[in-house]
Amino acid sequence: MKLLLIEDEPELAQALVHYLRNGDVVCERAASFGEAREKLESFHYDIVLLDIMLPDGSGLDLLELIKEKAPDTGVLVISARDALDDRITGLERGADDYLTKPFQFPELSARIKALYRRRKRQGMQTLHWQEITITPDTHEVKVHGRPVELTLKEYKLLVFFIENAGRVLTKQSIAEHLWGDHVDFLDSFDFVYQHIKNLRKKLAAAGAGDYIKTIYGLGYKLTDQ
């Protein structure tokens, strides 16, 4: 997957590029409107992460350029301004998703993957991790080709893990992914453990290996090692 990050804040951009470059993901960065336009005109990207507010122009104009030059490119707008106008204008002009700064990196990563899958309509519509296969359209989970019954939360949890495979996910980012911002008032995210336990149990019963590793004091990680 080829990503272009258009973000003028160097520190944030650097962290994001570093975080997103993982496995088959290639992430490039443009720091200004001009640089972004150059790159967009010269190369093709699967997903563009677009900051609306750039020092030398509006990200919304870039959005139009992308839609014109490469309509199959997915656009995820990231903005510090949680202004409704931006969100609506962004989505109206063809952005696929919107995230407000600051955001959890795993959340962004999951959104990118989901967007990538939606955009790749023509390709395979499944998500794989070892012997586990997921069909997002139907929420079907199979282990060794045999279906596994999961609750909605367990399903979302599994997809979140697979989309962030190899990364440490804190209990908080898991909780926020599953329940949205509703969990921000909770003092402890230990309840995440219960869901993970159930998921592990169901996967193990279906004959899958135990890939969810507990990282002490921190959270969990999906890994095949």
Binding site: E9, P102, Q104, V168
Partner: peptide, 23 residues
């Protein structure tokens, strides 16, 4: 929001560091 986003991002990277001790 921007500085917080940066700090959060750096910490996220730090968390991915396999050398990181549990404490």
């Amino acid at each position: 929001q921007t500085p917080v986003a940066i700090a959060q991002g750096k910490m996220e990277l730090l968390l991915q560091d396999p050398e990181l001790k549990p404490r």
